[in-house]
Write a protein that binds this DNA or RNA. Structure first.
Lengths: 217, 217
DNA sequence: CACCTTCCCTAACAAGTGTTTGGTAGATTA
DNA sequence: TAATCTACCAAACACTTGTTAGGGAAGGTG
């Protein structure tokens, strides 16, 4: 990351002039470019992806990206933030519904696979990069999201144990990581239009998580 | 990667002289440096890790690494190759034993957690980077390993279905990915000496995978 | 027509990258 | 003591990186 750019957030705002920046890229084009960037990030990894590769995929030159975004990191942030916002829209509507613990778990898993279907690249990026990113203040919202995520799942699992629908002899934190991981790693191999709908994959996963793969004796 | 180094693999071999390279680094020091490098790779990601960071962690300067290794990529390769070699040592002894499908699955899972315990960093690197690396001819052995891996697991699962110990109503390829992922993602959060031994984690995971997390009705 | 806006290009920059070359302190061997 | 070997340092190299500055073509609007 060259150019330390110490000029204390110098952007537009000519000290009392117009409020908007001098240039106004269209949101449609931004979104289009973000989708392209997300695909490259997901495929090659964030650090291995140069702005020139993104520009190539978009059919333009590297410098031209800076008409729409003010840094490579901004693209990453916008991709992840958009994904998390939509994810929590879905989760919140599930969590606020009057469901039993088992139904809540089923709904959360199904909703997760739908999000993977919609934001495949963003999920892949999130999984690979979030661990390093949380160290930066710019990406602190990732930590907050992770904590809400953990709380939602742990609460559901604990409620299930209390109600007698989930086994009480399991380490609940281990079970949490188990469920969480089994769901989200699917983004690494899932391809939309591959014969399985998100709902169908969710059903099979739930069947394994809830009842196991062994035959009942 | 600067320096195109077009000189057609020019390294030692002075056209008929001594067989060994002019310098001979000790294998002990190599191993030590590789362990350090693996930790940094795992924590920061391969591409985000500069040779200067590795050198820092090792208490030396960047150029000094090139006395022991001939490139950053060589370090990565040796780390992954060492890990896979030891992994298959364990797997092969399990697969050649006269075990039923359920016992084979249990042994494979347990062995996997032992390898995670031993090669935590290498496993983390493998998971993050292998997807991009397989494109390079230098890392083709990763593909071969993945194919053996898949075959071993699929065979075991199919044998279990035939023998009536695993459920026949599951998509077997989905079940394979399910079991594979649940095991290996543990490397992302597992820390040795964290209260759980590899065997204990294996038992809990197997309990969930085989019997599910719901209470039997 | 002139004017403005949107979108991209050309060309460069400074910092960071993996790597090489030559040298050298210290131990080991002859 | 001299020669040799091991393991490192110091300094540079060629190249890549994210980013910027200025300019210009196309289209719409007054």
């Amino acid at each position: 990351m060259p150019k330390q750019n110490q000029s204390s957030d110098t952007r537009e705002k000519p000290a009392g002039g117009k409020k908007k920046p001098p240039v106004t890229p269209s949101p449609e084009r931004r979104g289009e470019l973000l989708r392209i960037a997300a695909d490259v990030f997901a495929e090659q990894g964030y650090n291995a992806t140069t702005v020139r590769k993104i520009a190539d995929a978009a059919g333009m030159l590297a410098g031209s990206l800076y008409y729409h975004f003010d840094s490579k990191e901004s693209m990453l942030e916008e991709i992840l933030r958009t994904f998390l916002t939509e994810l929590w829209d879905g989760y919140d509507s599930v969590l606020s519904a009057p469901l039993g613990p088992r139904e809540t778990l089923e709904a959360l898993v199904t909703e997760s696979f739908r999000e993977i279907d919609r934001h495949r690249s963003a999920v892949a990026i999130y999984q690979k990069e979030s661990k390093h990113l949380v160290a930066q203040t710019r990406f602190e919202y990732l930590v907050e999201s992770q904590q809400r995520f953990e709380k939602a799942w742990l609460t559901t699992l604990e409620r299930g144990v209390t109600d007698g629908v989930f086994r009480a002899d399991l380490d609940i934190r281990l079970a949490y990581r188990f469920v969480r991981d089994t769901v989200w790693v699917a983004a690494s191999w899932y391809r939309p239009g591959g014969g399985h709908s998100p709902e169908e994959i969710a059903r099979q996963y739930l069947s394994m998580v809830l009842d196991g793969i062994s035959v009942r004796t």
